[in-house]
Design a protein around this nucleic acid. Structure first.
Length: 261
DNA sequence: GCGACAG
DNA sequence: ATCTTGTCGC
């Protein structure tokens, strides 16, 4: 897949000020409503499906994107899946020009991700990106930045909350399938306080008391609503905390990392 | 000045 | 994210 909005390609040489200005522009362009060809119910694990009319329908292409690092190099891996099966894998290695700065992650990792996406022969119907989407100070997290730049539906899947107010405390975890709404707070300067910007999602939980799994933080990246973003994550999770496409991309990045000079 | 902060 | 063995718990 290709860049559709060249002006949004993350440029690490920009000043912090310019980066933030670009993010506000990206947020205005982003669509936090459903505009995708994926039905979460058919996104899970049985590859070929059948429609009500008996027509053969192929499951949507759901891709996972994740990065690994080796010194000043970022390795971005993309794994495209369809009904749980791997359709294609691609990865790219790019130098990181700036350090990790909360709120500006896309300017550090975005370039490598776009490079990996451009090597894909199949265009995913939706991308699960590691990190935040709309749950961001200017509603332009990594998932949103990437989604808007290539104009593909994206979902942000993070392990920690960047900002925003959970409807209930997230400590201790919840039963599997639980979703706790996260609302915009003062830290999210571009949204009206109270706006539903994402969910804490419990994709997995231990049976007994003592130990517990923390929920994932899911938010819309682009062309996906908060509800659908969570539906997709729950539908593609298969017994583990991370959704399958993300887990696959995770280890693909680690493998690729091994072969980096 | 203090706090808060994805990967 | 990354550096890393054992260890606690199911």
């Amino acid at each position: 897949m290709r860049v559709v909005r060249p002006g949004f390609v993350p440029d690490p040489s920009l000043s912090r000020e310019a980066m933030e200005t670009l993010q506000r522009e990206i947020a205005e362009t982003a669509v936090f409503e459903d505009d995708l060809s994926v039905d979460p119910e058919t996104a899970s694990s049985d590859s070929e499906q059948t429609t009500l009319s008996g027509e053969a329908a192929s499951a949507p292409l759901v891709a996972g994107v994740d990065q690994a690092f080796v010194d000043d190099r970022a390795v971005s891996a993309v794994v495209v899946t369809q009904g749980g099966a791997v359709v294609e894998r691609a990865h790219a290695v790019e130098r990181t020009e700036i350090p990790y700065i909360p709120g500006l992650l896309s300017f550090r990792e975005g370039g490598a991700i776009l490079a990996a996406l451009e090597r894909l022969e199949h265009d995913p119907d939706v991308l699960l990106v590691d990190g935040s989407g709309r749950i961001h100070f200017r509603e332009a997290g990594l998932a949103t930045h990437v989604g808007v730049t290539v104009d593909v539906p994206t979902v942000g899947v993070a392990k920690n909350l960047l900002c925003g107010a959970p409807e209930r405390p997230l400590d201790g975890g919840f039963p599997e399938g639980t979703r706790v709404p996260i609302h915009a707070d003062d830290a999210i300067e571009t949204a009206t306080a109270g706006t539903h910007v994402g969910d804490a999602v419990q994709t997995r939980q231990y049976d007994s008391p003592n130990r517990h799994v923390n929920p994932l933080i899911v938010s819309p990246g682009h062309r996906v609503s908060a509800e659908t973003a969570t539906d997709l994550v729950l539908a593609t999770a298969a017994g583990y905390k991370l959704p399958e496409p993300t887990r696959l991309a995770d280890r693909a990045a680690d493998e690729a990392k091994t072969e980096v000079p």
